[in-house]
Simulated scan of single mutants.
Amino acid sequence: MNGYWYGPYAYASYQPYAQPAAHGETDQRMQLVLRLILEAISDERHDELFYDYLLSVAPTEKEQQVITGIRDDERKHRRLFRQMYTQLTGQRPPMTGEGEAFQKPASYLDGIEQALMGELKAFEKYRVIYKYIPTQYRDTIFEIMTDEMKHASYYNWLYAKNK
């Protein structure tokens, strides 16, 4: 291990010179992609609700604007993941977690920290999707991944500003 924590997706670490996948392995990879996309749909919905809460307690108009932009990106990501799932499977993704509530953080600052860590974890998950998804979807996944890094930067700024 090189000292970096890769979270629960370390099993899919980057292998630049891996051999082409056998047919069964390709099916397994696609099943992994579909499972992670379904998780992403649910996660993006949870994030949207969580960021609605942060928006309601943000102390300044500037912070509200930043969180609104992030929340709107999460809505876009959810829509894009739903479209990809439908295109890949020919079926609409199941509606799961729609009525889920989230746990309010102990404070605004705790919520910002939780949001920052969530954005970084999402990036790790989306990196696995990027690796195994058919090539024609990679630009979309790349856009989502770069949005997540942008969000992490904004939450880092918000955290430092409010610390």
Rank of each mutant, 00 (worst) to 15 (best):
R92V: 05
L80V: 09
T86H: 08
F50C: 01
G97E: 04
T68C: 00
T68F: 05
L34K: 13
G97R: 02
Q64K: 15
R82N: 02
L54G: 14
A40P: 04
D110W: 01
D43R: 14
Y85N: 10
I37H: 05
P94F: 04
Y51M: 06
Q65S: 10
L80R: 14
T89G: 10
E39L: 13
G90L: 06
Q31S: 14
P59L: 03
L32I: 03
S42T: 13
F50R: 11
G97K: 11
R78H: 14
D72S: 11
A40W: 04
L54I: 02
G111R: 11
E44K: 12
S107K: 06
H77W: 03
F50E: 08
R29D: 00
Q103T: 13
L109Y: 02
L80S: 12
Q31P: 01
P105M: 00
A58V: 01
T86N: 06
D52Q: 10
L38S: 14
L80P: 00
V57W: 05
K62Y: 12
L80D: 10
P93S: 12
Y53L: 08
L120F: 03
L54D: 11
E48L: 12
E100P: 00
L120K: 15
G99T: 07
T96P: 00
M84F: 02
R45N: 11
Q87W: 07
G111F: 00
R78T: 10
Y108M: 02
I37K: 06
T86C: 07
D43S: 15
M95Q: 14
A58C: 07
G111K: 03
Q103W: 01
T60Q: 04
S42K: 14
Q64T: 05
V66Y: 06
Y85G: 13
S42Q: 15
V57C: 06
E98G: 03
R92H: 10
E63R: 01
R45I: 00
E113F: 00
I67M: 05
L32S: 09
D110P: 03
L120D: 00
Q114V: 01
Q87T: 08
R78P: 05
R45W: 14
S56P: 03
L88A: 13
R35E: 12
A40F: 09
V33G: 10
P105A: 14
Q83Y: 05
A58R: 07
L55H: 10
Q87N: 12
P93K: 09
E100M: 09
A106E: 15
A106C: 04
V66N: 01
L116H: 13
M30G: 01
K104E: 14
G90S: 13
I41A: 05
P94N: 03
E100G: 05
I37S: 10
Y108P: 01
A115Q: 06
G90F: 09
V33E: 04
L116M: 14
L88Y: 06
R79F: 12
L80Q: 15
D110T: 08
L88Q: 07
R92E: 13
S107P: 06
P94D: 07
D43N: 15
P59Q: 13
K121L: 02
H77N: 07
S42I: 10
L55N: 13
L109C: 04
Q91R: 15
G111M: 03
A58Q: 05
L34S: 11
L116G: 01
P93C: 06
R35F: 08
R45K: 15
V57P: 06
F102M: 12
R82C: 08
I70T: 01
E39Q: 14
L38F: 02
R82H: 05
